[in-house]
């Protein structure tokens, strides 16, 4: 365990080694946040919203957006890119020399990134949000607790999906835009940009059977109180089921990937 702890520490130190990147990232996040919120303000101002008859006020929508941007800045799933670059550049050979499970190492790396993101991304974002739009309060203490639990599951689901996509690199060596396609699908179907409530019923029905909406929409819905306590428990259970399914699938892929390893470049 101490080894994983040190992996996390190394990642935090590495993140801090690039101060310029930290500052630029901060500015980018705040621009994203402001732009998303102003789009919703504009939409509500013109009375466009409400097609589904869903009862979500502007203030709730602003909170939804702020929390969504915040989660996106903290959820670090570098594993997709890590596996891809390590395979592509052949450095996967060195990772195999550690007497530890590779995925454990990559997970610690991402947890380290999350720790540094909490400090240098989440905190500035919260400050900016408070200054611009007021503090985005949760619906209640229970809602907040549910949100924290649900967010943890969200991260695990996102991480497992990223690891799976990254592992495709063992077969094709050249991932191309697969990662970007997956990221786009996640962004749209997770409700991180626009909640799925605003989508046609058909999309919503299909989406219920996919893992994506359980990554962003579920915890944020709980946070703003759109999801009732009973529904929240049910949603978190579904998240748990997805964690198990994706976890087993990843383990199965990994077992086959191991024998497919190629080391590029001598």
């Amino acid at each position: 365990m101490r080894a994983y702890g040190y992996f996390i520490k190394m990642r935090v130190l590495t993140a801090l080694a690039y101060r310029f990147e930290v500052w630029i990232g901060m500015v980018g996040d705040i621009i994203m946040l402001a732009a998303s919120v102003y789009i919703w303000k504009a939409a509500y101002g013109n009375g466009v919203v409400g097609s589904g008859g869903f009862d979500v006020g502007l203030q709730n929508m602003i909170t939804y957006t702020v929390i969504s941007v915040l989660l996106a800045s903290v959820f670090q799933t570098g594993v997709q890119n890590t596996i891809y670059t390590q395979v592509r550049e052949g450095n996967i050979a060195l990772d195999f020399m550690r007497p530890l499970p590779l995925l454990g190492i990559y997970l610690s790396d991402d947890i380290g990134s999350m720790v540094s993101a909490l400090v240098n991304k989440a905190i500035p974002l919260i400050v900016a949000a408070v200054l611009l739009f007021g503090f985005p309060l949760p619906a209640g203490a229970g809602a907040f607790a549910g949100f924290l639990v649900s967010s943890l599951f969200s991260f695990v689901i996102l991480w497992l999906m990223s690891a799976m996509v990254g592992m495709v690199a063992f077969w094709v060596a050249e991932l191309g835009n697969l990662g970007m396609v997956k990221d786009a699908v996640v962004r749209v179907l997770s409700g991180s940009l626009v909640p799925l409530w605003f989508f046609p019923d058909a999309v919503q029905n299909v989406s219920e059977w996919l893992p994506f909406q359980y990554t962003y929409q579920t915890p944020i819905g709980i946070y703003i109180g759109v999801t009732t306590a009973g529904d929240a428990v049910r949603a978190i259970c579904i998240q748990g089921i997805w964690v198990i399914i994706l976890g087993l699938l990843l383990a199965w892929i990994w077992k086959h990937a191991r024998s497919k390893v190629m080391v590029q470049g001598g």
């Binding site: 101490r2 080894a3 040190y6 190394m10 130190l13 590495t14 020399m97 470049g265």
Partner: peptide
């Protein structure tokens, strides 16, 4: 293992950090 064309050292950190990490990995 040493692969002459690759490095297991952490590129952005002081050399000592890699040894500290290895110390924990191998207990």
């Amino acid at each position: 293992v040493v692969f002459g064309q690759r490095t297991q050292l952490y590129w952005d950190l002081r050399l000592g950090e890699t040894f500290e990490l290895l110390k924990r990995i191998y207990r």
